[in-house]
Amino acid sequence: MCRWIAYTGTPVFLSRVLFEPEHSLIDQSLHSRMGVETTNGDGFGVGWYTQDTTTPAVLRDVGPAWNNRNLQEVAHHVRSGLFFGHIRASTGTAVQQTNCHPFRHGRWMWMHNGMISGFHRFRRDLVLTVDPALYPDIEGSTDSELMFFLALTFGLAEDPPGAVARMAGLIEKTGHAHDVPYPLQMTIAVADGERVWAFRYSSEGRSRSLYYSTKVDALRALHPETSFLRDISDETRLVVSEPLGALPGAWNEVPESSYGVIQPGGDALHAFRPQLHDGPLPA
């Protein structure tokens, strides 16, 4: 599987989050504690927004994150208030740049940990549901990217939670029709440049790990000696596949079958349930 991190809040150098913590994402690429694989070396990617544009920049490569000089160069010189980082462990599709996360379409950015079980058996059925206007923009061969384009097809721009729920419902319905009992395993992060949504769900009810950070003001009260907490705003939050360190009280497990939204003015956590699409599909 994979490991990922989503950061939103005070603009910081990417390296402060990707490299510096005790159990950073780079450390997890070699020493994951909660993933299916200990090593996640089948590529990496970072994506970030700046104040000058609503379209995120993306850097992706097929090599391991732990020794990539381009990643180090970018991370120590790019500052952002909303960025994603992802390290990949392939579930069967090719190790190639177009299969590395995060994926981008317009202002939207997407990354995934998990898999569609039996993907090779009903991939064609899912592909044929993608909006024909979107289909030419699919670059790779992963289930993760196809999930993104299904969500775009089902209205991600207007209703992200609903679009992801309809995407999940289609995968489960199609998988069951092909005798796959538990078709979907996912933790997903999606952003539009202002908000971040994070989803944790699996058909079996045993989803991959996912955590969110405690509010900064509460952490400052618990750990006034921690310099990083003095440098960031109360709005700063992280969502991670596994905690970046052992700071007491810093991390909270995202509940099974739920999603959260991090947004200006207040975050929210909701139950998540797949939905069947009840409107017309693209021609």
Rank of each mutant, 00 (worst) to 15 (best):
T55G: 03
D42E: 10
T142D: 02
F13Y: 15
S213L: 06
D137C: 09
A246I: 12
W197P: 00
T153S: 02
G205L: 04
R104I: 14
G249N: 08
R60G: 03
T129P: 00
F19G: 01
Y259Q: 09
S24C: 05
D217P: 03
A65G: 04
F228T: 10
A157F: 01
R16T: 09
E145R: 01
V46P: 03
G169H: 03
R237G: 01
A271S: 11
R123Y: 04
L222S: 14
P183W: 00
N252M: 11
V46R: 00
A198M: 13
I138N: 02
A246N: 11
G35Q: 10
W110F: 15
V74D: 02
E20F: 13
P183C: 08
G169C: 04
G245H: 10
T53I: 06
F44P: 04
A191R: 02
E204G: 05
A94P: 02
I188W: 03
R220C: 05
G155S: 08
Q185D: 11
A177L: 11
E158Q: 14
S117C: 10
A246T: 14
L229R: 05
Q263E: 15
P136T: 06
V74E: 07
M111K: 06
T129A: 12
F44G: 09
R69V: 15
A157D: 14
Y7A: 05
Q96W: 04
D159C: 08
G193F: 03
M1P: 06
H101P: 07
A250C: 09
G249Y: 07
P280M: 15
A65Y: 02
Q28T: 05
D278C: 09
T55M: 12
Q185T: 13
E235P: 02
S80A: 15
H112V: 03
S203V: 04
L18S: 01
S203P: 01
V74I: 15
D42W: 01
L18V: 12
P102A: 11
D42K: 07
S141P: 04
R195I: 08
D217W: 14
G9C: 12
E225K: 11
P264C: 03
N67Y: 11
M147K: 06
F228M: 14
T54Y: 08
G41T: 13
I87W: 00
